[in-house]
Simulated assay, not measured.
Amino acid sequence: MSAGQMHADMVPIDEGLVRRLVAAQFPQWAELGLERFPSGGTVNAMYRLGEDMVVRLPLVEAGVKGVSLEQEWLPRLAGRLPTAIPEVLGAGDPTHEYPLPWSVYRWLEGENPEAGAVRDSKLAEDLAAFVTVMRGIVLPGAPKAYRGGPLTLLDASTSAAIEELRGIPQEGIDCDAVAAAWEDALAAPDWDGPPVWLHADLMPGNLLVDDGRLTGVIDFGCTGIGDPACDLFPAWNLLPTDAREVFRQALGVDDATWRRGRGRTLSQALIALPYYRTTNPAMAHNARHVIRTVLEEG
């Protein structure tokens, strides 16, 4: 992997390539302005197309499943949720020059919230409303959510990440305390209810806000049904203590689900930090925030 490259198997993407793809497959948009949109995302590159659209292309083959998942399920989820979600305007085909499927979406306005900058409980209330409605959706043939299964499925990768962090002392992670927090999550009872619909990746980078209120949720590449604890991520990756409690109370989360949710969020952070610490500052920063928050909560 070259310096600064997130993944060893990244597909080369640049503005010229995207212009050629759009011109060949969507000639009605060929003359619109095109500009790379800076993002802390890890799986897709995004290019603003005109004023009202965005082209989203997987950086790695692992992102292909999310493309087909969104193209199939976003139209079926549209109109059922209390906030805006991406609208697929075009499904791009692989070519000899770019071998993966891709999509064009309607542009959604808003800014990503930042952990530590949330000042009141309004965003917590909005997030709880989104998660509540998402859980209540019933659609036939729902896929299994990424990470939505038993927490034990994450044990090997999480434990390996903890050991890797022991070898990075400059990060200053109390790995014994982190391991104890992870063991606590593993000891929580598994979800024994029916699987529910999940976004399954409610990271700050996948949320859009305006004036402190949730206006949109993007990146449904992990969506599907599973353990409701999977959509508690914002409690630790974004919300301050008081708002975290508002979020929990609004969702009526029991102790076991809360412990699993905390463990899931911690697992994601532990795996992300050693992987992205030198290549994706946004992901690494949020991972450190999650680890610190979980340990402070006890």
Rank of each mutant, 00 (worst) to 15 (best):
G167I: 00
E163L: 11
I137D: 03
R213I: 08
D201L: 05
R244I: 03
A188T: 05
G221T: 12
D242W: 01
L139Y: 08
R213E: 05
G252K: 12
D231H: 10
A243P: 09
A235N: 09
A200V: 07
N237K: 05
R147G: 04
G149Q: 09
A200I: 01
V131Y: 10
L232C: 07
V209K: 00
P143Q: 04
G172N: 06
M203I: 04
A187N: 11
E245V: 14
G148P: 12
R244F: 10
T215P: 00
I218Q: 11
L207S: 02
L239V: 08
I168G: 04
G172I: 04
W191Y: 14
I168K: 10
D219Q: 13
D192C: 08
A129Y: 00
D219W: 13
L186P: 03
A243K: 04
R244G: 14
T158I: 11
T215E: 15
P240R: 13
T215S: 09
S157V: 14
D155L: 00
A229D: 03
G141S: 06
A188P: 11
G221E: 07
N237L: 03
A156Q: 14
A156S: 11
E164M: 06
L232F: 08
V217F: 09
T241K: 10
E171V: 09
T132S: 12
I137P: 02
D190M: 03
I173C: 13
G141K: 04
L154T: 00
P140G: 11
V217H: 02
P240I: 07
F220D: 05
G216D: 05
D242C: 02
L186H: 07
R244C: 12
A129D: 14
A180S: 08
D174C: 07
I225G: 00
D190F: 03
G149I: 02
Q170P: 01
V217G: 11
P204S: 02
P189M: 10
I137C: 06
N206Q: 04
A180P: 01
G149R: 13
V246N: 00
L207Y: 01
G205N: 09
R213Q: 12
S157H: 05
R147N: 12
D219Y: 10
G252T: 12
A200T: 07
L208T: 04
P234I: 02
G205S: 00
H199L: 10
I137F: 04
S159V: 13
E183V: 01
L165N: 09
C175R: 00
A177G: 12
G212C: 06
R135A: 15
P228S: 02
C175S: 14
G216K: 07
R166Q: 09
A185F: 03
L186I: 05
I137N: 05
L153Y: 14
R213T: 14
A187H: 13
P240T: 10
L214T: 08
